[in-house]
Design a protein around this nucleic acid. Sequence first.
RNA 1: GCUCCGGUAGUAUAGUCCGGUCAAGUAUGGCGGCCUCUCGAGCCGCAGACCCGGGUUCAAAUCCCGGCCGGAGCACCA
Length: 481
Amino acid sequence: MIITRFSPNPDCVLHLGSARAIILCYEYARMYKGRFILRFEDTDPKLKKPVLEFYDRIREDLEWLGCKPDKEYIQSDRIPIYYEHAEKLLHDGNAYVCTCMSQEFRKRILQKQPCPCRELSPEIHLERWKKMLDGTYAEGNAVVRVKTDITHPNPAIRDWPALRIIDTEKYPHPRVGSKYRVWPLYNFACGIDDHLLGVTHIIRGKEHLTNQHRQEYMYGHFGWKYPEAIHYGRLKITGAFLSKSKIVQGIRNGTFKSWDDPRLATFLALKRRGITPEAIRQLIIDVGPKTADVVLSWENLYAYNRKILDPKANRFFFVVNPVQLTVENVPKAFDVQLYLHPEYPEKGARKYRIEPRRENQGTQFWISRRDSEKFKRKQVIRLMGLFNVEILDVKSYAVEACYHSEGYQEAKKLKAPLIHWIPIDMGMPCNVVMPDASIERGIAEKLCKKLKPGTIIQFERFGFVRIDEVTRKLIAYYAHK
RNA sequence: GCUCCGGUAGUAUAGUCCGGUCAAGUAUGGCGGCCUCUCGAGCCGCAGACCCGGGUUCAAAUCCCGGCCGGAGCACCA
């Protein structure tokens, strides 16, 4: 039975940087009909203090990604288990309670010299252990170290710290408060749990490579077999930073309004922008678990997303920077149908009746300044699905034109540009929030009012967007072209 | 500095373990064209890479050595 695990510290929401661990672990377990475990590693109430809110956020992120864990563990619930194992190591002389100052210890260990504590008997250490637990030792005064090889070429591996004291009166843990004052460090808790929970395959970032070597010594002491471990390289994406501390910092100082700010690469932000979990999944599987660092390009993600969205997203018109277009001499009323999806007419259509106005008022539309800027006098333009007009006059705020012809073939012959439009009284204000958090203002078809938040549509000739809010005004988030 | 790990087109990836079928496949992006009443999709075509230098070998992207470049770790963080 294959068992994998994803083990975050609940001190932030999840982001694209975690996607590799999650998806690879989940898919691998699923591929072999195994189990996927979620384990919260919340054993530092001081420096990397867990926050209650994030336990749930992480569960939600995982669910959104489609990687629901089969089982969940929380390390702060398992403290007694770590104590037991610490005592066993102490008892067997495979660990010791070190009361040296950390600088002092480091100085010795760099010279491959044991500290005085190391040589003491297990009985003394067991006694010191009691003093760690009962409060005789204060924070920083004692630490349990696992014996390794103090002549190991990599000093980082020599007699690493396993448990330390934290003044939880001062730094209470959000879940268990001040119940424990001795807390396991990463390598100890993680190493014990991986074995106890039956984890067979560890897939994690290569920053943990030396941790594997450290833990292997402990596994040796217990007579356990270390799981298969794969250490993948760092994943970056151009322009975005995938660092928890920077995300948290940006939220704190107000640079980002929320965890789903479009500039962030958090799952929350990607979701809000209309990036589908399936696209992320495919991207991560494509990237795989290799040890070289990868710098992804957003285009790669967009390409996967577009492939998923294109057949599903209904089409609507959105006019950025609206300009009024007045068409004179419209000869009759036109009933037009604009398909919601060009490839699937059966999905229905948006229907408009365009009527000639009386008394030389002209028929009016909203069109985009992006288009009108390129107009030249006498040029023929086709209003998509409607008719062709000849441009008479272009001002920065308005365009005058007159009816030219109806047929699409006519427009083709004249190589008339195709532009989208909205009847002047059929629009609703719409803001599109771009990936850089800037806002494109314009007018969308009034019909969009019926869309539900969360729906992903395509604004033709503009891009795919996710409807975020529908009131008198439409708020959409831009995904990509 | 010490200890590890890696380096295939703009980006990502296949091939590397078990040398030949790789004068290097795929996706995406770029360019050109076709198609389409979207600047989306689809179709066709073009350009684009084995970090460098040695060695082993009939034969090296693949094996060995050296260099260069990049990354990670060196916490009483995870």
